[in-house]
Amino acid sequence: MMMNAAHCINEYGQPVGEALPDWKPVTLPAGEVLNGRFCQLIPLEVAHSEALFNAFSTAQDDRDWTWLGAEQPVTVEQMQAWVSHKIEDPQLVPYTVIDKMRNQPSGVVCYSAIDTSNGALEIGHVTWSVLMQRRVTGTEALFLLLSHAFGLGYRRVAWRCDSLNTASRRAAERIGFTFEGRFRQVMTRKQRNRDTDWLSIIDREWPAISAAISTWLGEDNMDKHGVQKHKLDRFLL
Score class of each variant (00 low, 15 high):
Y12F: 12
T166F: 10
G36F: 04
T178W: 01
L41W: 06
A208L: 13
M2A: 10
Q80K: 15
E122Q: 13
T137I: 13
G218I: 01
D220W: 00
T166Q: 14
N4V: 06
A81F: 07
V16H: 04
N35G: 08
S214P: 00
W65I: 10
F150Q: 04
D62R: 02
P21H: 10
T137V: 15
P73Q: 10
M101R: 05
D115F: 05
Q133D: 06
D195W: 07
S129N: 05
E122D: 15
V83R: 02
K190G: 12
D61L: 06
T196S: 15
I202K: 02
S49G: 06
G36T: 02
G36D: 06
L144M: 11
S210G: 04
P29R: 07
H48V: 09
V186R: 08
V76Y: 01
L68H: 09
N4A: 11
W128P: 07
K229T: 02
K224E: 14
E45L: 15
A30D: 12
V46S: 13
G124C: 12
P21V: 11
N193F: 14
A47V: 02
I202M: 08
F179W: 15
I9Q: 06
E173L: 12
I87W: 05
V136A: 03
T27I: 08
G176D: 09
Q78C: 12
A172K: 02
F235M: 11
H148R: 13
V136Q: 04
P73I: 03
T66I: 13
A51C: 10
T27W: 00
T116K: 01
D203I: 09
R135Q: 13
T58V: 08
W128N: 13
K190F: 12
Q104W: 00
Q133H: 06
Q72R: 15
M1C: 09
T166P: 01
E18H: 11
V26W: 04
D89F: 05
R37N: 03
E180W: 03
E219N: 03
Q191G: 09
C8N: 13
V46E: 15
C110K: 03
E18F: 08
S129Q: 07
G153K: 03
E205F: 00
W198F: 15
N54L: 14
A51R: 06
Q185W: 04
A211C: 07
M1E: 10
G218K: 02
T27C: 08
T116N: 08
S214D: 12
